[in-house]
Computed example of a mutant assay.
Amino acid sequence: MAERHVLGISGGKDSAALAVFVRHHHPEVEVEYFFTDTGKELPEVYEFLGRLEGFLGKPILRLNPQRDFDFWLREYNHFLPSAQTRWCTRQLKLAPFEQWVRPMLAAGDTVVSYVAIRADEDYREGYTSKHKNLKVRLPFRESGVDKRGVMDILESSGVGIPKYYDWRSRSGCTFCFFQQKIEWVRLREQHPEAYEDAKTYEKNALEHGSPFTWSARESLTQLERPERVAQIIADFEKRKQRNRAATPINPLRPVRDFPEDIDDVYGVDEGGGSCIVCHK
């Protein structure tokens, strides 16, 4: 029997910072890093994983689901995943992780899983273990590391943040249903082929009677109309200005040494139910 230490990398800033944090503060621990690859990730995610591997000095194991998104889409009668039915997270993220650790647990090993929930996220809960030998640790919460602390860790390490934060507030699949409308507009600008793929999935789902579109209350075809795009951009700029005005200035940090805080710019409600395993 052994003790295994595992840390899931989502492609987002928090889990990357946690990997750096654990390496710095617990160099004696042999951590196995993993990334559950749905095959529908942003290209910027893969670039960032390579950068993080360079810092960690070891590869990040890719866990590929045995059955892909298209298989599960057919299983769910071509109904798109949504905030109400998150089958994508369940089948493409959680199930591969559970399959990976199952032989370890069956051998009697203790598996310690590190999860990147910050100290300022009291409302969040991590993965709930269903096995007595699978232990979940929250090092950021234990050590009082908040959002600013995460950014400091990434900056001081030289890892930085993923490039998609220039236009998007979270990692996850290209067509993640938690995207805001402005992020769909940006996806169309940055990766038009991915946007077209999402439109095809959506059209097929609607033809099969799916009650969901990727973006609430309108299809991607409706969203991409020039007048609608202009309205979305204008609404976003107004919201951005309101969020900036409402953000108190820290006298110890009067000048941002990172690009503007992602959540401040996008006005993301981090408690809104977004999937931890996908975007943290």
Score class of each variant (00 low, 15 high):
Asn77Asp: 10
Phe55Ile: 10
Leu223Lys: 13
Cys176Gln: 14
Phe35Ile: 02
Tyr76Phe: 15
Gly144His: 01
Ile153Thr: 12
Phe35Leu: 06
Tyr201Arg: 14
Gln91Ala: 10
Gln180Trp: 05
Thr89Gly: 04
Val22Asn: 01
Thr174Asn: 13
Ile117Glu: 10
Tyr76Lys: 15
Ser157Thr: 09
His208Trp: 01
Gly271Leu: 04
Thr247Ser: 00
Gly39Arg: 02
Ala17Val: 00
Lys132Asn: 06
Val20Arg: 08
Asp146Lys: 14
Cys88Asn: 00
Ser169Asp: 09
Pro65Gln: 12
Ala245Pro: 02
Lys203Thr: 13
Lys147Pro: 03
Asp14Tyr: 03
Gly12Asn: 09
Ser157Trp: 01
Arg67Asn: 10
Cys88Phe: 00
Thr247Arg: 03
Glu28Gln: 03
Gly272Tyr: 06
Tyr46Val: 11
Lys199Pro: 01
Gly160Ala: 09
Val268Phe: 00
Met1Lys: 10
Tyr195Pro: 08
Glu125Ile: 07
Ala198Val: 15
Thr213Met: 04
Ile233Pro: 01
Val112Arg: 14
Met151Trp: 15
Val268Pro: 01
Arg244Leu: 12
Trp167Pro: 11
Val6His: 06
Glu53Asp: 06
Phe175Asn: 14
Tyr266Trp: 12
Lys203Ala: 15
Gln84Lys: 07
Gln84His: 06
Glu227Cys: 05
Glu202Pro: 03
Asp70His: 11
Val150Leu: 04
Val31Pro: 03
Ala19Met: 09
Asp235Cys: 06
Thr128Ser: 15
Lys163Pro: 14
Tyr123Phe: 15
Lys280Trp: 08
Val277His: 10
Met1Ala: 09
Gln91Gly: 02
Cys275Leu: 13
Val115Lys: 03
Ser113Tyr: 09
Leu56Gly: 10
Lys199Gly: 01
Asp197Ile: 00
Leu252Ser: 15
His208Thr: 03
Gly271Arg: 11
Pro251Ser: 02
Leu73Glu: 11
Thr38Asn: 05
Arg239Gln: 14
Tyr201Asp: 10
Arg188Gly: 05
Phe35Ser: 02
Glu155Val: 12
Val31Gly: 04
Val265Arg: 06
Leu18Tyr: 02
Glu125Val: 13
Glu207Arg: 15
Pro96His: 06
Lys147Tyr: 11
Lys93Val: 09
Arg74Val: 07
Val20Lys: 06
Phe258Leu: 13
Ser171Gln: 09
Gly39Phe: 00
Ala194Ile: 05
Glu30Asn: 14
Glu75Gln: 10
Glu32Gly: 06
Val22Gly: 01
Lys13Asn: 09
Arg242Gln: 11
Asp122Cys: 12
Ala107His: 13
Ile9Phe: 13
Trp100Glu: 12
Val101Phe: 05
Phe212Gly: 02
Arg23Phe: 11
Gly160Asp: 03
Ser143Pro: 02
